[in-house]
Design a protein around this nucleic acid. Structure first.
Lengths: 185, 185
DNA sequence: GGTTGCTATGCAACTAGTTGCATAGCATGA
DNA sequence: TCATGCTATGCAACTAGTTGCATAGCAACC
């Protein structure tokens, strides 16, 4: 049945790192995991139901004080086996979707006002990514301080974070190049 | 009606750069445009039909010698107006989907054989991106030789290509980091 | 005369992901 | 007591994209 369905596998990895409820997963998908996979809470709940009925995960109702009850999920043996099979499949070539690049090439067909608007937009976009980089670098200093012994899982998390940092730095440099190019038109 | 539907807009940009048939567009989406937006020929034909019935593009049947006839599309006024409106909308925050990063974090839950398989896979992945970078650099030398006068459209195409090159270089460096990390586990 | 292969277009069924909405528990403060 | 806001879960309708398949023109080669 082919290889896709990466959301399921991202959830398996996250639940293996730390079991949790759909709500907690949704919040992780807004932070750490969200760096390389995104999903809404609706989709997460839907997929968790399917994974539960496939026997990949096990749910446990947990009563809580001072807040609503929750269903905490953890990975079952079948889920772990599925993950390991998937890990050994080749990586799918990724579907590129870079809207900003489309807009930059599209700017050739807009007038001076449109190009000015695009410059503002690129500046705004750059600011949001500056903030993202700052957040990553801060997280790196907090979670992986120099000179600390790290286990395998932490070293793998760290190398993925370094990828995010490298990406954001590359992006900021390129956005400067874009701004120079747009201003020189 | 919100802002998404970027495929339509990528097609508009491509047809403004150069009118052409669905087949020709599909080939461009395998090369230049494919650098920042992907689509299958089935989807392109489907979307072109919709764009035609919305009056964004105009089709012309062209009889050809030595090969089947084709329907050549060009952008209508309504399509150009739509593109310009879209260009001025804010860029949507992109949905990140980085399967390899999921697999790297997942490797913490696999055994030595699984990590060895991942190393091979990363090496293979690295080779394909080496080839991509080479292709980009070659294309840059061919299309944008140093010291040439470029018009606005070409300068914009060039800066987008530079982004692709910067991305691939960053990626190759990071993959080396990943390989070092995996081997040191 | 048949096969292979590129050009050219498309339908149908499916999967994945988005958007809008709804419900409910419980705490805090006005 | 009412409003606000966070925790927590979910349904329904929709849009976008994928996959598998089908058809046909025409050239070149065997």
């Amino acid at each position: 049945m082919m290889a896709p369905m990466a959301l399921e596998h991202a959830i398996l990895v996250s639940l293996l790192e730390q079991p949790g409820s759909g709500y907690e997963l949704a919040r992780r998908f807004d932070r750490s995991i969200g760096r390389f996979w995104t999903a809404t809470h609706q989709q997460i709940y839907r997929v968790l139901k399917r994974m539960e009925s496939d026997g990949w995960v096990i749910a446990e109702e947990i009563g809580q004080d001072g807040r609503p009850d929750k269903r905490a999920y953890s990975v079952a043996e079948a889920g772990r086996a599925e993950l390991i099979t998937w890990l050994r499949d080749p990586v799918q070539p990724e579907a590129v979707r870079h809207e900003l690049a489309v807009k930059i090439r599209g700017a050739a067909f807009d007038d001076a006002a449109g190009r000015a608007a695009l410059i503002s937009e690129v500046e705004r976009y750059r600011k949001t990514h500056e903030a993202v980089l700052e957040r990553y670098v801060h997280g790196e200093g907090r979670d992986f301080p120099a000179g600390t012994e790290l286990d395998a899982g932490q070293r793998l998390q760290h190398v993925v974070l370094r990828g995010g940092i490298a990406y954001e730095r590359m992006l900021l440099d390129w956005l400067d190049d874009v701004l120079d190019t747009l201003r020189a038109l």
